[in-house]
């Protein structure tokens, strides 16, 4: 890292005292110090600490009697953890896929010189301002097996309609997908729309003069140049999926049974309600590992891309 800021570190100023000059040089570093301390302790120190705990037999209180990889072995022998991971795979895949498909589709439509575009965009995005707990509460009500959607359809004349996903252990995870997609797809739309707006209109004109049809322009020219947007969307959505906790908590509390558990939910209940701190720590370290598994390749390709200009 070169010190390439605006400031050359040797400013030769007369008299006025070396002290002030010293202070001026130290001020920037001093200003960063509180944050540096917070980040060092709060992010890296605590991460390390959790790592240590995951190798101990801690239960209700931290204990430092080390048990090696026992907690990890227990974790992967735990049916509930495995369900949580399977659920995360299903949820993560469907959530990311649906958000991308819907977001990208709506962005392309919105980019066709739409009247009242601002209003429509505002509507697509407002769910993001809501808490996941609110979202979960609402969808829990809408999907309520007796009084919700089912009753509505019956009232509207579709009497054979049945919708019990919320209480069906095999289907409950999909209800969470629905609510999450409702909340986050507008966000992908905003990212794609910003990306589309970043394209030089002359490029589209050039393609039209070249004779390309509108679908072809989108497939061959516009979407390929959306690659960075696509990857950063996947990144953010995957991040949301891994951290998802509030939504499950509010909609199903992980139920029925633990059919809609996600790792974040598992971690919470084992650590804070069941007093299995060691196991909880191990599960949180696994969540970190999942995140790194997608973050590291992403950053790697980003950095390499930057270097290649």
């Amino acid at each position: 890292m070169a010190h390439s800021g605006v400031v050359s570190e040797t400013t030769s100023q007369p008299a006025r005292g070396r002290l002030t000059q010293r202070l001026q040089q130290w001020l920037p570093k001093l200003a960063l110090a509180p944050t540096a301390a917070m980040a060092l302790v709060g992010i890296y120190g605590f991460m390390f600490w959790t790592g240590v705990l995951s190798f101990t037999g801690s239960t209700f209180l931290p204990s430092y009697e080390f048990v090696g990889f026992d907690q990890y072995v227990r974790l992967f022998g735990n049916a509930r953890w495995l369900t949580a991971c399977t659920n995360l795979a299903i949820f993560g895949f469907l959530f990311i896929f649906c958000c991308l498909a819907i977001g990208c589709f709506l962005a392309i439509l919105l980019d066709q010189r739409i009247r009242n575009e601002g209003v429509i965009r505002t509507i697509y995005l407002y769910p993001l301002a809501l808490s996941m707990i609110v979202t979960g509460t609402v969808w829990q009500w809408i999907l309520n097996p007796s009084l919700g959607l089912e009753k509505l359809m019956h009232d509207w004349g579709w009497t054979s309609f049945q919708f019990d996903w919320l209480t069906n252990p095999n289907m409950v995870i999909y209800t969470i997908v629905i609510a999450a997609v409702w909340q986050a797809s507008g966000f992908v739309m905003a990212l794609f729309l910003a990306g589309l707006r970043g394209i030089d209109p002359a490029i589209i004109n050039a393609a039209r003069v070249d004779g390309a049809s509108l679908p072809r322009i989108y497939l061959r020219i516009v979407l390929p140049s959306m690659r960075p947007v696509f990857f950063s969307s996947v990144m953010v959505l995957a991040h949301i999926a891994i951290k998802s906790f509030d939504l499950v908590m509010a909609m199903t509390s992980g139920g029925p049974g633990y059919a809609s558990d996600l790792p974040a939910m598992f971690m919470y209940s084992f650590t804070f309600t069941r007093g299995q701190m060691g196991l909880g720590a191990a599960s949180s370290i696994m969540m970190l590992a999942m995140l790194l598994a997608i973050l590291v390749p992403y950053l790697y390709s980003e950095l390499r891309g930057q270097r290649n200009g």
């Binding site: 980040a39 992010i43 605590f46 959790t50 931290p62 991040h239 974040a264 650590t271 909880g280 599960s283």
Partner: peptide, 21 residues
Amino acid sequence: IFFSLLLFGCFLPFQVILLPM
């Protein structure tokens, strides 16, 4: 480098700091 290290805080799954915090 400090900035990069701090940025990781945006991606941190908070479960991993709950217990020590």
